[in-house]
Design a protein around this nucleic acid. Structure first.
Length: 269
DNA sequence: ATGCCGGGTACGACCCGA
């Protein structure tokens, strides 16, 4: 099973790229972020024609997340618990049944948090606290759990073209990193970093020739619970998509899990 | 370079992103 995350920065502006990529990459499950539309404005039919089930959690103009899946999406949940006043659409989660069990897949658009001297930053940190509580609760099931999305978080210096310039930004500062560390310390594996020590950027700004200069950052992540990480086969960042016409500023990250198929770990056993 | 692009809203210029 191949699972992907992609911040598409406006589904309707990006529909052609999304359809082209779905046809090419044929992922089984996709988490989209920043759909930037209400549920009724989501271009369902073109994607359904490709064989995907769709669940959305939209919002007018901003944010908004969606799950696409070749498998049925069950027990769909929208929104992050812990703050009744939070009206931003940033989390959608569902269960996908696989041979011999099921995997819970959570797709997030974590708040950016800039500028740090405004309420946006405490909102981000509180959101990460709420996310960590949700993940801790989910892990108690001991079932495979995958958390993916745009985390707006640079995990380490290698994930940034210019760490000194970024240090102090909401994406790369101690308070944000501490919350991300708590997530990893409860057993969530950053699948990209588990499989390579090379840079693998997922975002290049539209401005200042960032793509041309390869001035990127890695902020889109797929995190696997212990039971999911056991089944990890491969990870790929679809970097070429950034060079397409009218691209998003983010590219897809994809992870393959051997939930139904044998894995290298099984072969070694 | 806290706005150099670029989307959404809505039709003139703002808000927002990382």
């Amino acid at each position: 099973m191949r699972i992907a995350s992609w911040n598409i920065n406006g589904i309707n502006a990006r529909l052609h790229a999304v359809l082209t990529w779905l046809d090419e990459a044929k992922p089984d499950v996709v988490g989209l972020q920043e759909i930037k539309c209400m549920d009724e404005k989501f271009p369902r039919s073109e994607i359904e024609d490709r064989g995907y089930n769709i669940e959305t959690f939209g919002q007018k103009s901003f944010n908004g997340v969606a799950l696409l899946s070749r498998y049925p999406l069950e027990d769909v949940s929208r929104g992050l618990a812990g703050d009744e006043s939070d009206e931003q659409s940033r989390l959608i989660e569902a269960t996908v049944s696989v041979e011999g069990g099921s995997v819970r897949i959570c797709n997030i658009y974590l708040p950016n948090g800039n500028p740090v001297d405004t309420p946006k930053f405490p909102y981000k940190i509180a959101w990460m606290d709420r996310l960590n509580a949700h993940v801790a609760s989910s892990l108690r099931s001991e079932e495979p759990f995958i958390l993916m999305g745009d985390f707006n978080l640079i995990p380490s210096a290698i994930d940034c073209h210019d760490p000194a310039a970024w240090w102090g930004d909401a994406l790369y500062r101690p308070e944000s990193l501490e919350k991300f560390r708590i997530l990893r310390n409860m057993g969530m594996t950053d699948v990209l970093r588990a499989t390579t020590s090379d840079p693998a950027y997922t975002f290049w700004d539209f401005q200042a020739g960032a793509w041309r200069r390869n001035a990127g950052i890695r902020i889109d992540h797929i995190m696997a619970s212990p039971q999911a990480a056991d089944r990890l086969v491969a990870v790929k960042v679809h970097k070429d998509v950034r060079g397409w016409d009218k691209p998003s500023d983010h590219v897809p990250i994809e992870a393959q899990f051997g939930f139904a198929e044998p894995t290298a770990r099984d072969a070694a056993a």
